[in-house]
Design a protein around this nucleic acid. Structure first.
Lengths: 290, 290
DNA sequence: ATCCATACATGCAAATTCGCACACCAGTGA
DNA sequence: TCACTGGTGTGCGAATTTGCATGTATGGAT
């Protein structure tokens, strides 16, 4: 058996990324190295794994087979790393947190500072991602998420419930209070593409003014007076220049969870992190609810 | 991620074999290389994986964890290799067969010669093993086995049924025929440690003379006149100087199967091999049954 | 038509990895 | 006691692997 397991990994990377260069970037090596590993893998398996095209490597059926099993090997590796991480009793090294940008900026920051101060040997890496990172693949060790349930293979604690409400500049608020028939411009978030329930009844002249794929941008727009936004109350209350608009009562919003893969959940670093976050959110609860 | 997958493989090998040297042999590299890979794995995982003792490496708990997942990676690799092998349509390269020593020697040989002649580009490797090789791990591609069922994850065809009977030198046969009360010495095979059913009634002066763990040795003993042996009829009929002893009627014996892992089953080489073996055994069937 | 970005192939020098030789240690049997 | 076996650690030169620089091809934008 004269094949390196890392050669399988190269096949997997090229099947995924379709070019040597992209695969090389993924693997953190030079692309010529990837080319050579592919060549070795082909020699060892006795199969042609890729068609060399001018715009990339096109995987053959055999390469897909190899890649499928290499992916299994990779997920075994991830499971191993999670297992090692989970039984790690040291309060040192790295800890990667992912959380929504705005939650970090407006709520979490002091708690993170507290954690860093209490555990100076742990270097905290914060990934303020809009997308959901894959905790299986250890893109982060732990996540704070706004969602209805913690996730599938993940373990989680509910940090707090939340309400949402509608916010805008004081001018909008006054206008809406004085004349429900005045036109109301709404700013909508991509992921919640409809007007809040009941708005049409109370403000019949509502219109959808803009749609955003980004909360920060949308909040900025609201602050500039472009319209009314439904958002979690913690956010509306934290943003300078916004007030809650009347009439529409706050509604339940997705809860805030702290989640991690069950394998890494017991690690000392995560225990320490939760020990700070849970009381922190308990104390901050009024900020999140109406 | 700066760890080589082959380092995991080194950890697995050392956990299995307990010494660097043995692991190195398993991996086909120098033992110093294994030592260095272990060191790298420890650096990468941040865990102490082995206690360096004077008589070997003693795995820590962390090493067992790593090894467990590395074993998963290994079995994924084996599955991959089986998959590649199974879709291989070429009638060239290597084909490893395992079968019981005596079956090869006394029955199979001409069929193997036939195969080699018809498919000269396939180099047939024969492993006449007494133990059962692991087809999952590709210790052989295909096996001919004497057993009651083909096996668990394996696919198989029944080549023939079999009978067993009792054989000895003609002297024994004559003596037993003339005087059922004469003492009869039996040679027993380790795996069938009791006298054949009914023997005590017919030959009340039977005694267990010797036990063997090896069929070849036992057959040789029978040929030298040391006693009576129950064996498959094909074997008794093939061995010079033995005759079937009277009175005891032939009994059903475990069937002969040709088995392979279902992944490799469809490969051209295995198809070709079965295409020779199946008719061969059909034609030879009288040899196996009473 | 030309330029540019992006892809792969290849030759060569640098860096890394590997195997060998030797040193050392512990246990075992003569 | 002493040789011997079977284990590990280390230094050094050889072999392998890697990265860089350069060359070539192709498709799209100007």
């Amino acid at each position: 058996m004269d094949i390196h397991w890392d050669d399988y990994r190269a096949v997997l990377a090229v099947v995924r990324r379709r070019t040597l260069s992209a695969a090389a970037q993924e693997l953190g090596v030079n692309y010529t190295t990837v080319a050579r590993r592919i060549a070795r893998a082909e020699a060892a398996t006795g199969e042609v794994l890729f068609e060399r095209l001018t715009d990339g490597y096109r995987p053959t059926e055999a390469a897909h087979l190899v890649a499928a099993y290499a992916a299994r090997m990779e997920s075994a590796e991830h499971a191993m790393l999670r297992g090692l991480s989970g039984r790690d009793a040291r309060l040192e090294g790295q800890l990667t947190l992912t959380a929504p940008q705005l939650l970090i900026a407006h709520v979490l920051a002091p708690a993170l500072g507290d954690f860093a101060q209490r555990h100076p040997a742990v270097s905290l890496q914060v990934r303020a991602a809009n997308e959901i990172l894959d905790l299986n693949r250890r893109e982060a060790d732990i996540a704070i998420r706004i969602s209805r349930n913690p996730g599938d293979t993940l373990k989680g604690l509910r940090l707090t419930q939340q309400h949402s409400a509608c916010f805008a500049t004081p001018e909008w608020a006054t206008r809406m209070q004085q004349d429900p028939n005045a036109p109301v411009d709404w700013l909508l978030y991509e992921k919640q593409p409809n007007l809040p329930d009941g708005v049409d009844n109370i403000y019949p002249n509502s219109r959808i003014h803009m749609r955003f794929d980004d909360m920060v941008a949308m909040a900025g727009a609201a602050q500039s007076g472009l319209g009314v936004v439904r958002m979690p109350v913690f956010l509306g209350r934290s943003l300078r220049g916004l007030v809650q608009v009347p009439v529409l009562s706050p509604q339940p919003y997705a809860d805030i969870w702290i989640v991690a893969h069950s394998d890494v959940w017991p690690s000392a670093r995560l225990v320490a992190f939760r020990d700070i976050m849970v009381p922190f959110f308990k104390q901050k609860r009024p900020l999140f609810t109406a």
